[in-house]
Amino acid sequence: MHVLHVSEVTWGGVVSLVHDFMAEQLRRGHRVSLLTPDAFPDPELPAVTRTSWVLERRRPSGYPRALAQLRSTIRRERPDVVHLHSAFAGFFGRLPVLSGTRRVPVVYQPHAWSFDLFTDARIQRSMTAWERTASRRTDALVTNCTDEIDEGREIGVRTPARALGVPLDVERFHPVDRDERDRHRRSLGLDHSKTLLCLGRLARQKGQDLLVAAWEATPLPDTRLLLVGPGDPEPLRRLAPTQWGTTICWIGDQHDVRPVVWASDVLVLPSRYETVAVVVAEAMASGVPVVANRVNGVDMAVTDGPSPPGGVVVPAGDMEALLAESRRLLDDPELRAALGRDGRERVVALFTPELVVDRLDEAYEQAMREQR
Rank of each mutant, 00 (worst) to 15 (best):
A87H: 08
V14T: 02
P37G: 09
E77H: 07
H174N: 07
L350F: 08
E370K: 06
S135W: 04
S126A: 15
F21P: 00
A367Y: 08
Q205G: 01
R75F: 02
R78V: 03
P43W: 09
D179Q: 14
W250R: 04
C249G: 12
S135F: 07
F173P: 02
T275M: 04
I123K: 15
R75D: 14
P315F: 08
I251R: 10
A129W: 10
V15W: 01
P160C: 14
V312L: 09
V170T: 15
V106F: 08
L350Y: 11
A47C: 02
H30V: 00
R125Y: 05
W130I: 12
H255S: 15
E151T: 12
D116N: 13
V276T: 14
T101N: 00
D331W: 08
G13K: 03
P46Y: 07
E334W: 11
T51K: 10
D116T: 10
R59F: 06
S86T: 13
E216C: 10
E44W: 01
T303Y: 02
R359T: 01
E234K: 11
G62F: 10
V48T: 11
L202D: 08
R369G: 10
D342L: 11
V314D: 03
S307Q: 14
I248M: 07
G297W: 02
E370S: 11
E234T: 13
A337D: 11
V14P: 00
L117P: 01
L220V: 04
E234V: 12
A163P: 13
F40S: 00
D179N: 11
V14D: 00
G287R: 06
G152I: 06
L330I: 04
G317D: 05
S114A: 15
P105M: 06
T246E: 14
L267D: 05
T275H: 07
T247R: 05
T49E: 15
L164E: 03
F92L: 15
S72H: 12
L197F: 05
Q254L: 08
D80Y: 00
D209V: 01
L225G: 08
E365G: 11
P175K: 00
M300G: 14
R294M: 07
E154S: 15
R75P: 01
S326M: 13
V347H: 04
R224K: 08
P315S: 13
H30G: 00
R183P: 00
M22I: 03
M127H: 08
E354K: 12
G90K: 05
T352E: 11
G62C: 09
V106A: 10
A121I: 08
T159M: 09
V228Y: 03
C145D: 08
F173S: 03
N296E: 13
P315N: 12
V357M: 14
P79F: 01
V176S: 11
E56Q: 14
S135C: 10
L188I: 00
A213G: 09
R224T: 14
P105N: 06
R75L: 11
D177K: 13
F118D: 14
V347R: 06
I123N: 12
G207E: 11
L117R: 14
S52F: 04
D332C: 09
R185K: 13
G12A: 10
L323Q: 10
L84V: 01
